[in-house]
Simulated scan of single mutants.
Amino acid sequence: MENSCGNSRIVGCSFSVHPMSDQFVSYIKTSLQEVDTSKVWMHTDDVTTTVRGRMEHVFDVTKAILLHIAKTEVHVAFQGTFSIGCPGDSSGDVYMDETTERMNEAETRDIQQYIAAKFSLYPMGGGNYMDTIYSQIEAMKEKGVTVSPAHYSTRLEGDTHDIFSGLEDVFRETENSGSSHTVMTVTVSANSPTHKEKKS
């Protein structure tokens, strides 16, 4: 099997969402129906959903899917792997021609949702990225995100919009620093009973 990267910078994310409810299928299907996926390529199988396209649209869609489930107040977990660069394929290049307008921003911007998250970043193609990562983590703190070290990852706590904005920034700037292939893993928990205990 031969992989071809083409000339575009397609971003992909393979993710799973897990509503902690017997009605998990309904929560997932309803969320997917509410989210505008017209600017990304998307495929769901029995393990994950994969979205591919421009960076801003991949982050817009994944955040929106999480928010539309979390707004029901069900405890939900999200786990995703974001990737850009070789090795990869080029069958989705058509989505790179889309405009930068985020199709779900207007519908989700007023959904205020606290989350806890952990992320790990893997620049695999060189580049001077450590200073970039540290500077973007400092930028997250300035947005009000609580940042703390964790084993094999960095822990984030705060509003979903602030955290996803910070994750997108650190992912983009790591690529811009010279990494030809960048991978980021993200695990999110929303509406956890632990969160309610902290707020009480």
Results as ranks from 00 to 15, higher is better:
D45Q: 11
T187R: 03
M20P: 00
T81M: 07
G166C: 08
V40K: 11
H75L: 02
M1I: 05
T187L: 01
V94H: 11
N104Y: 06
T72Q: 12
F78E: 01
E56Q: 14
F119Q: 01
D169T: 07
I84S: 08
G125C: 04
Y152I: 00
T49A: 05
S135T: 15
D169Y: 01
T99G: 15
G6Y: 06
M1P: 09
G88S: 14
P193T: 08
E2N: 10
S16A: 11
W41E: 10
V47Y: 14
G12K: 15
S8Q: 11
A190R: 04
V147T: 08
L66T: 06
M55S: 12
V145N: 08
R102L: 14
F24A: 14
K71L: 01
Y152P: 00
F119T: 03
N3S: 07
V170D: 10
S83Q: 13
R54L: 15
D131W: 11
L67F: 02
N128C: 04
I137S: 11
Y27L: 04
D162C: 09
S91C: 04
T194Y: 12
G53M: 09
V58C: 12
M130S: 13
T99C: 09
I28R: 14
S177N: 04
Y122W: 08
D97P: 02
V76L: 05
C86Q: 10
K71P: 00
P149A: 07
G53L: 07
G178R: 03
E168P: 00
K71V: 11
T146P: 03
G80Y: 00
